[in-house]
């Protein structure tokens, strides 16, 4: 197995773990919050999924930098300044900062949750959409729009399901 295949597989595993865990965390959070109070037993699935989210993030970052080194060592340095690659680094940076703010309770779950989900899905889409040909700022503008839409959508879902918290 060559290095590109190893990198691709590990990058996919990191993304799958992250996107999968964040999706289920959102689902369990909404289900737990439905009656207005979150019981300790309802938090358990979220607690179980969080290490997978962290593991996914670590694998994603390490394999991402594996790609960086691969491009550097094989003479494809121009790919490092690709707007899609730089935008993905920015999005992963947001995931890291948002994760820290959520863990230290410096940001409400109503805001931090959708930022996390939207960022993971954006990172996933940016990784998969190889033909995307937009400038860095256009990609980031679209990402900000997606994040705002995610926050708005969560508010609408909570209203529709009459979730008080």
């Amino acid at each position: 197995m060559d290095w590109t295949t190893i990198l691709k597989i590990s990058h996919l595993i990191g993304t799958v773990l992250g996107v999968g865990a964040v999706s289920f965390i959102d689902f369990f959070y909404l289900r737990a919050a439905r009656d207005g109070k979150i019981e300790p037993s309802e938090v358990e699935p979220i607690r179980l999924l969080t290490p997978f989210l962290r593991l996914g993030l670590i694998i994603l970052i390490l394999s991402g930098f594996g790609y960086f080194l691969f491009y550097r060592l094989t003479g494809h340095e121009e790919r490092l300044l690709n707007p899609r690659f730089l935008a993905k680094i920015t999005v992963v940076g947001v995931i890291l900062i948002n994760g820290l703010l959520l863990q230290t309770k410096k940001i409400p779950v109503n805001i931090g949750g959708p930022i996390s989900s939207a960022s993971w899905y954006t990172a996933f889409i940016l990784g998969a959409w190889r033909a995307l040909n937009l400038s860095y700022f256009a990609i980031i503008a679209a990402y900000v729009f997606v994040v705002l839409m995610a926050i708005f959508t969560l508010g609408v879902i909570k209203k529709l399901l009459k979730i008080p918290i």
């Binding site: 930098f65 491009y71 550097r72 340095e77 121009e78 490092l80 730089l86």
Partner: peptide
Amino acid sequence: GTAVTIFGVVISGAAK
């Protein structure tokens, strides 16, 4: 550390 890491990516990208 994050800042120097990102600088490293841009520096490497400029080495072409």
